[in-house]
Design a protein around this nucleic acid. Structure first.
Lengths: 109, 109
DNA sequence: TAAACATATTCACTTATGCGCATATATCAA
DNA sequence: TTGATATATGCGCATAAGTGAATATGTTTA
């Protein structure tokens, strides 16, 4: 495997690890609706302001969201809606897995 | 937000964190082609056997791959091809992000 | 400039993740 | 049962990631 492949795979994993936190997933789904400021997101998701800011930083550094200052506020927006498509796909996988397990349990009775 | 929503979001994040490692991504892409035994995967990806086994365990525990013992070997297979679809989507996002940055650099010259 | 508000960051700490090495477990064949 | 092979796991360590509390930075208005 080439070094380039390794680097790309690492970046690929970096994007996935940006998604690997419940609050960041909720942040992305919120931003899929419309742009939000940090405080609005914090209130909406009931997370503290510093924690919200830190999670947004992670998403921003990995290019998943954009930040634009609007006066005293900073407005965050989703960079690419395919992130939501990917999250939805994974949620579908999860749903089917849970349904499958539920069926197994029913079979056992 | 309900407790149930939180639980589902946590499981959603657990799937994402299963993808959040370069070797696990490579394992999944390999298994997308055909089933493999642990040793074959280890040789194919040039990872040690214990490390391969542990990464497969993570994928297995989160329901992303299936393991079936075949005599002395254990054959792993991809559980749901939509995982690859989701990974491909994220790779597309990555590609466009890199292309965008490359354009910015060209503009600077 | 000072006050008020929004956002970002630092610090100290805890927890989670990943690895190499050695070893345990499982299966089959002789 | 013993030996050979494949797979899984325990241990110790290093490092990454996440948190609350406090504080710094940035921006606007009075």
């Amino acid at each position: 495997m080439t070094n380039l492949t390794q680097e790309v795979t690492q970046l690929h994993a970096d994007i996935c690890s940006a998604l690997a936190d419940p609050r960041r997933i909720l942040l992305l789904y919120a931003l899929a609706e419309k742009p939000y400021t940090v405080n609005d997101l914090a209130k909406y998701l009931e997370i503290s302001q510093p924690v919200t800011s830190r999670h947004l930083k992670i998403l921003r550094e990995r290019g998943l969201v954009n930040a634009t200052r609007d006066g005293i506020n900073v407005e965050y927006s989703l960079n690419d809606h395919r992130l939501i498509d990917a999250l939805d796909l994974l949620r579908d996988v999860l749903r089917d897995r849970i349904a499958h397990r539920a069926n197994l349990i029913v079979e056992l009775k």
